[in-house]
Amino acid sequence: MKALIGLAAAAVLALTAGGIKAAIPGGPTGPEPTEGAATRVRVTAVVDGDTIRVETLGGRQLGRVRLLGIDAPEVAHPPTPAECYADQATDLLEELAPVGSTVQLVTDSGQPDRDRYDRLLRYVDHDDVDVAHELLARGAARRYEAAQDLAREDSYAAAADDAQEAPRGLWGTC
């Protein structure tokens, strides 16, 4: 009887572990993350090197959008000073997605809709340029290590590696 209970427990554990593994997007048995819906919006503000504010084309505020896959240096939050290269990263984001411009927000099936700060998590494309990819390529941001299960992960990793090896942007300054 003990052997039968032990066998049943092992089977449940194996099924549970397999179920968890299968549910992880991009895992060995899970689906690869894909890009989803694209929505055209207007940029109303650049908050820092990886966050913008947007509104619908009709003028309804949608709030803050955190660019997927990147982590830019933090701007000053007194009394904490800005991190090295924060101002340059913010300026570059303003150049790539200017206030008043229309951008595409694109979802990723491997990522939640919002982060813990209630920001939308999206790819941001402007004039056929992936803004986060360009920030990585110019060394204005690092890859966001917690978000490696991305549809655009391969191109982001390559851009970040190239910038670091160059060394461009923060990699040559900080």
Score class of each variant (00 low, 15 high):
44 T>Q: 06
60 R>G: 14
60 R>V: 15
20 I>F: 13
122 R>K: 10
135 L>R: 08
102 T>N: 11
131 V>E: 11
108 D>E: 07
148 Q>R: 10
25 P>N: 04
52 I>V: 08
39 T>P: 13
112 P>I: 03
51 T>W: 05
139 G>D: 04
120 L>C: 01
42 R>M: 10
30 G>N: 12
54 V>G: 02
83 E>T: 01
12 V>F: 12
129 V>I: 14
24 I>P: 05
97 A>H: 10
38 A>K: 15
34 T>W: 11
57 L>F: 08
35 E>C: 14
150 L>D: 02
162 D>T: 14
71 D>H: 05
37 A>D: 15
167 P>M: 08
61 Q>I: 09
56 T>Y: 12
81 P>S: 02
168 R>Q: 09
113 D>A: 11
117 Y>A: 07
150 L>E: 04
128 D>S: 15
107 T>G: 06
27 G>L: 09
112 P>Y: 01
10 A>D: 09
72 A>L: 02
41 V>I: 06
157 A>L: 10
31 P>L: 11
30 G>I: 09
166 A>Y: 09
83 E>C: 02
74 E>R: 00
8 A>W: 13
46 V>A: 03
103 V>F: 07
164 Q>Y: 08
17 A>E: 08
125 D>C: 12
93 L>E: 11
81 P>A: 05
114 R>H: 15
152 R>A: 13
173 T>Y: 14
81 P>E: 01
83 E>Y: 00
157 A>F: 04
37 A>M: 15
60 R>Q: 15
5 I>C: 02
53 R>C: 03
23 A>M: 12
123 Y>G: 08
115 D>N: 14
48 D>L: 01
120 L>Y: 12
38 A>M: 13
77 H>P: 01
159 A>H: 04
110 G>C: 04
79 P>W: 00
146 A>M: 13
130 D>W: 08
110 G>W: 00
59 G>N: 07
81 P>H: 01
74 E>Y: 00
14 A>P: 12
141 A>R: 03
111 Q>D: 11
33 P>R: 03
158 A>M: 05
95 E>F: 11
110 G>Q: 02
136 L>V: 03
97 A>V: 12
23 A>P: 12
57 L>Y: 09
88 Q>M: 09
17 A>Y: 06
137 A>D: 10
19 G>F: 05
22 A>Q: 13
120 L>K: 06
